[in-house]
Each structure stands twice: as structure tokens, then as C-alpha cells.
Design a protein around this nucleic acid. Structure first.
Lengths: 151, 151
DNA sequence: ATTCAATCATTGACATTCTCAACGACCGAT
DNA sequence: ATCGGTCGTTGAGAATGTCAATGATTGAAT
């Protein structure tokens, strides 16, 4: 009558169907994988994201905080760390002397390129359960959710 | 020639294409919405997930920690809180006197039902940018990622 | 030109959360 | 009866998130 030993329930019926919960779990898994991949480079996913913006955008710390949804005070310590490692520099904004522009040094550009590859490698493993087409679809859906507050 | 004012770049080119990053951002957004929706019920998404397991599964604290990927010590304080509010009870496991089974009280069942609705309402808003079909597809993809470590 | 509210980076305090090691109570097997 | 392993609990320390206050600087109003 009941050959089903309830193996289909992973956590709990409602939680298994709760997109927020799944999002949190998948995100935690992915972040953990990313952090271990970045460890040997002396980075975490947090500092990596700051380095990425410094390398590709060159934003003010304020702008950086908004893009990454961080508190400005967190940006201070993150940039402090990266600057201490020589990966990033604070430049004065010529048009606003209050602001500090964060740019990657040559060394920072190099490390960013390697970190980018490390993250990509970790993601290949993490996302292996999905086909390539599915990974693209997931990226599209997530982008529309994650940036829903912009525009 | 270039009517594109680069509005397509939200954070940074590589970050915008980084599924881990999008996952983290969408998850943070969703969790924040869930927390505000649960605030008036005196819950957070964390305690809600514990309450959900107590109501639907009735696991030992050990089992609970594994399902939610929490440290056993975190489970202690979470269950302490819920128990202090009369939402949950610790029962002795008759087959193992070391273990404590966490079950929802009648009051806990009631609050869980309301919290479930509150979460659902918050998600309707958070996931509004996606069609119903897309939301289902997202759930399917996330489930396969989030539970890739099981089985 | 001066004043004044607002913005930027920074500091420091505080709460929340994560991670880990240790411990008594209890289990299963020897 | 003993012994290695597991469960819940406690406590400590690090990491993270949140928030208010401050000095320097801006832009706008007067």
C-alpha cells in the first residue's frame, strides 16, 4: 500500500516548497564552495566581490556599498584589507573631495583574474546537477529576482 | 552610435554573470522580505524554519540541525526561544534517552499556519517579476541545487 | 560671500550569527 | 562492567550586521 518511505521529503513539506528557503540553502552551499576555492588566494567571496568592482568599475566607496548592499562601514574594513595587501588603491575623486574611488592595482587585476577562474571552477562543481541550458535559465531567473529593486 | 548608456551593468560585468553572487543577492532580498513579514508574529525566518520542522516532522535536535544545516548549539537556543513562547515542547525520545524530540504545541501549530501564510504573501511580492510558470521552474532548479548533497 | 542642510568616509559600540571545543548523560557493543 | 561514540548543552571567540556620531566637503539658499 505504501511503498513510499517518504524519501521525497528532504527537510519538511512546506520548507521543501518554500523558494526563500531553497534560495538560502543553495546560496549557503554556493558561498561555502566559493570560499574554499578562494582560500588559497587569500580571499573570501565578500572581498572578491569588492575586488571585482575595483577592477571592473572603479566606484566610490558609497557606490560600492550600494551595489553590494553593504553598510558603508563594512566597505571601509574590506577596502582596508585589500589595500593592505596591495590589491586596491584609494584615489581621490577629482570632482568630489569627500569621495574615495576604489581601483584595483596591477597586482589586484592579476589576482582578480585568477580568483575569477577559481570561482568559475567551484561553480562548475556546485552546478553540476544542472545542464548547461538549465544553468543559463537559472541565471536569467535569478537576475530578474536579484535586481528587481533596481529600475 | 551608442544609445546604450550601459544600464545593462547592474553591479559589475562578471558579478552580474556570477550565479553564486546572484544567488546570494536574491537570497538576501528574499530573507529580508520574509523577516519583515514574520516580525509581527514574533518570528524570523530561522525560528520559522525550526517551527516548521517541529510542526511537520517532530525531529530530534540532532536531526533538526542536520536538516537545517545548523550547528547543534544554535538549535539549543532556537528551541529555547520557541519553548519559552510556548510554541514548542521538548519530549524525551522513548528509544534514546539522550535525544530530545522537538514538537509543536497546539499554539505552535496555529502560529505556524499563520506564519506560513505570511511567508507566502511576502514571496508573492518578492517573486512578482516572474510568471507562475517561471516560479515553478525556479523552485525545481533550486531544489536540485540545494539538495545536491543529499542522496 | 556666508550659512546651512546634506553627503562621504570613518570610527566605535552593540547585537546577531557562526564555529569550535569541552562536558555530563546516555547508547551500543564487547 | 567497561569503553568508544553520540546527544544536548554550555561557553568562548571570531565573523558579520546594524546603527549612531563625527570631521571634511558639497551644493543650494540667502
Amino acid at each position: 500500500m505504501a511503498p513510499d518511505d517518504d524519501a521525497s521529503v528532504r527537510v519538511s513539506p512546506t520548507l521543501d516548497a518554500d523558494t526563500s528557503f531553497l534560495l538560502a540553502r543553495a546560496s549557503a552551499l554556493s558561498a561555502a564552495a566559493g570560499n574554499t576555492a578562494l582560500r588559497e588566494l587569500g580571499l573570501k567571496v565578500r572581498s572578491y566581490s569588492v575586488l571585482a568592482l575595483a577592477a571592473e568599475v572603479g566606484p566610490s566607496q558609497r557606490d560600492l556599498a550600494e551595489r553590494l548592499r553593504l553598510d558603508p562601514s563594512q566597505v571601509v574594513s574590506l577596502v582596508d584589507e585589500l589595500e593592505a595587501c596591495g590589491l586596491v588603491k584609494r584615489r581621490l575623486d577629482p570632482s568630489d573631495r569627500r569621495a574615495r574611488i576604489v581601483v584595483a592595482t596591477t597586482e589586484g587585476q592579476g589576482l582578480f583574474a585568477r580568483a575569477r577562474e577559481a570561482i568559475a571552477g567551484a561553480q562548475r562543481e556546485t552546478h553540476a546537477p544542472l545542464t548547461g541550458k538549465e544553468q543559463l535559465a537559472l541565471g536569467d531567473l535569478l537576475r530578474r529576482l536579484a535586481y528587481a529593486d533596481l529600475r
